[in-house]
């Protein structure tokens, strides 16, 4: 019984920490992009704008929930939940320290579980686009689904090299395998490159934010959503960012290993460094055209990832 209680506490703690991180990710993103573009960013709510995120949350709660008359009421309601739940579920096998005592579920197929569960979020996006009964929503949903399934293949293939080197799919085992030797970012630099590009595309972030494309689709699949339901899409997007950053930190950057500082701190540093790169990309790059996006995915990343698998296999066979 105490084990179950401990588990429940771990679940609540992890989700709370992640949600707080999400709230301050939004603030950090606005600040970082602001300073990169020579403006101060949010600065009026609280000291240096530090209370901006609580204010945003409060605003989203007291906003009216508008449901279009033409929309399919049930699908319109269920879609944001279907987007958020898989994103939160994907947090289960993320190890925050070396021994894995902080993780919620020590699953031996950890990475596969994350890939499988976070991909369920596509259903939420498709249903949001369909249920809203709006042209922009449907277009955004179709684009998003095609983009996510295309880059899912590259994302999966880029991790095969890591599985080969560590001989395991468990997040704890992968980070343990790296603690003695080099981090996999060095032998797997091709895989790391493919993973980074595919991860940015998977989370629908700039420069691959075609599904949301403010200037042409106004907001894509969530144009008909307001208030709390809109917040769910937002939460799901940022939670997915944290999840892909965690996979990158575990599979390529040695997980929680590091010098001097405690493992948990190292792990968080690596994850936050990745999140910073996401913001950096958004401040730097313009949006791709849709045909360019699909061509990068299919004609460049997938052959490159396959080549990485074959090269890794050959090197492992002869060394």
């Amino acid at each position: 019984m105490p084990a179950l209680l401990l588990l429940a506490i771990k679940v609540i703690l992890t989700v709370t920490v992640v949600l707080l991180t999400v709230a301050y990710c939004v603030y950090a993103e606005r600040k970082v992009i602001g300073h990169m573009q020579q403006r101060p960013g949010p600065q009026f709510v609280g000291w240096r704008g530090l209370l901006q995120s609580p204010a945003d949350v409060l605003k989203l709660i007291i906003k009216e929930d508008i449901v279009p008359t033409k929309a399919d009421k049930f699908i319109h309601f269920i879609a944001p939940v279907l987007c958020l739940v898989p994103a939160v579920l994907a947090l289960a096998p993320i190890p925050f320290n070396k021994s894995g005592s902080l993780l919620i579920a020590d699953i031996n197929i950890g990475v596969l579980y994350i890939l499988a569960v976070s991909e369920l979020g596509i259903f939420g996006i498709i249903l949001a686009g369909w249920g809203s009964n709006s042209k922009y929503s449907l277009m955004g949903a179709m684009r998003s689904a095609a983009q996510m399934v295309s880059y899912e293949v590259a994302l999966g293939l880029s991790l095969v090299g890591v599985f080969m080197m560590s001989g395991s799919m468990s997040m704890v085992e992968i980070s343990k395998a790296q603690s003695g030797s080099v981090w996999y970012i060095l032998p797997q630099f091709l895989g790391f490159f493919v993973y980074c590009v595919a991860a940015v595309a998977e989370t629908n972030r700039t420069p691959f934010d075609l599904p949301e494309a403010e200037t042409e689709l106004v907001a894509g699949f969530h144009v008909e959503y307001s208030g709390m339901k809109f917040a769910f899409f937002f939460l799901a997007e940022y939670t997915n960012m944290i999840v892909v950053s965690s996979i990158a930190a575990t599979c390529f950057l040695g997980g929680a290993s590091g010098w001097l500082l405690p493992p948990l701190v190292w792990y968080l540093i690596k994850v936050y460094a990745f999140l910073f790169i996401f913001f950096w990309l958004r401040a730097t790059f313009p949006r791709y055209r849709y045909d360019q996006l699909m061509e990068i995915g299919w004609k460049f990343l997938i052959p490159l990832a396959l080549a990485n698998v074959v090269i890794t296999a050959l090197i492992k066979a002869y060394i």
């Binding site: 679940v11 989700v15 939940v81 579920a105 699953i107």
Partner: peptide, 24 residues
């Protein structure tokens, strides 16, 4: 090992339910 996933799933369902009710 999957008990944690079940717990997380339950919590992940309670969370949006709470937030939507509060907003309502």
């Amino acid at each position: 090992n999957y008990v944690g996933v079940l717990f997380l799933f339950i919590f992940a369902l309670i969370l949006p339910a709470l937030m939507i009710t509060l907003s309502k």
